[in-house]
């Protein structure tokens, strides 16, 4: 019996509201596949962010909780502390996690909460109409930086995975992408590893996924993938930045 490819059970039958070519759908599928493979659908609670994935609870067939903007790690902390037997993950975008929710994610990681965070980094605020995010590239045009991001005024893009991996608390921090099939397979392995660390009750885990936003970047979906490869990947290197077995600090792999 060869390998077949069908819709995972943990993904509901509802059509997504995402724009054509948005890689949110791919990451949703990966999360659902991992949950199916680990057989944890009945004891998983996801926490949805504010952002394009605000309606993520419609697309998964397990329990979901909606958090205020940026506060998903705080809500997940509460759920996990009350019910340590459940699997809790947050699904956040870059406007949510890297901007308004920076305090929550840093302190959740520093406390070593046994939760998993899926961090979608597409270098722009998607839902609100393409404003500059902390992760926007220098010179990138957005609706609030019509002449390109000026690093003199707004600083350089934030590298959240590196920033969080500098904390001394053990954690699993990795950066992946979904811009081609080979990276999708790697990203799925990373998400699975993150969930397994939580299953074992070992550490906080964060999987940053470099994604695309064809609509707000003003590109076709295929152009957006190549722009992500040529512009985002050199600045946001892929790899495992921290595993619970490594000793703090930035020992990027």
């Amino acid at each position: 019996m060869g390998k077949t490819f069908t819709r995972p059970v943990a993904l509901s039958e509802k059509d997504t509201h995402y724009c054509p070519g948005c890689t949110h759908g791919i990451v949703h599928r990966l999360v659902a596949e991992v949950i199916d493979e680990l057989g944890i659908r009945g004891k998983t609670i996801g926490v949805a962010p504010v952002g394009c994935a605000v309606l993520a609870y419609n697309y998964f067939s397990f329990d979901f909780m909606e958090a205020a903007h940026g506060r998903a790690p705080a809500v997940a902390t509460g759920i996990k502390r009350v019910r340590p037997d459940l699997m809790v993950f947050t699904y956040q975008g870059d406007g949510d996690l890297a901007s308004i929710g920076t305090a929550e994610i840093i302190h959740a990681a520093n406390r070593g909460e046994k939760i998993t965070t899926i961090f979608i980094n597409n270098a722009v605020y998607g839902m609100t109409g393409g404003q500059m995010a902390p992760t926007t590239m220098p010179g990138q045009k957005t609706t609030t930086t019509p002449f390109g991001r000026d690093v003199e005024q707004t600083g350089m893009p934030m590298k959240m995975a590196e920033l969080l991996s500098a904390l001394m608390t053990p954690a699993y921090i990795t950066r992946q992408t979904v811009i081609s099939p080979k990276y999708v397979i790697k990203a799925k392995k990373a998400i699975k590893k993150a969930f397994e660390y939580q299953c074992e009750g070992r550490c906080f885990s964060l999987v940053e996924v470099i994604s695309t936003c064809p609509t707000n970047w003003g590109m076709t979906p295929v152009e957006a993938l190549s722009w992500a490869e040529t512009t985002l990947l050199p600045y946001y290197p892929l790899g495992e930045f921290k595993t619970p077995d490594s000793q703090g600090g930035n020992d990027a792999a």
Binding site: G2, F5, T6, E13, G21, P181, V184
Partner: peptide
């Protein structure tokens, strides 16, 4: 060649590749 690359990249999970001896899943 049923490699599944299209399934991997489909953001809407619209593509499925099933083995022939399984009855094709009908849309609910």
């Amino acid at each position: 060649i049923y490699c599944g690359s299209c399934y991997m990249m489909c953001p809407d999970v619209a593509i499925s590749i099933t083995s022939g001896n399984i009855k094709r899943k009908l849309k609910k």
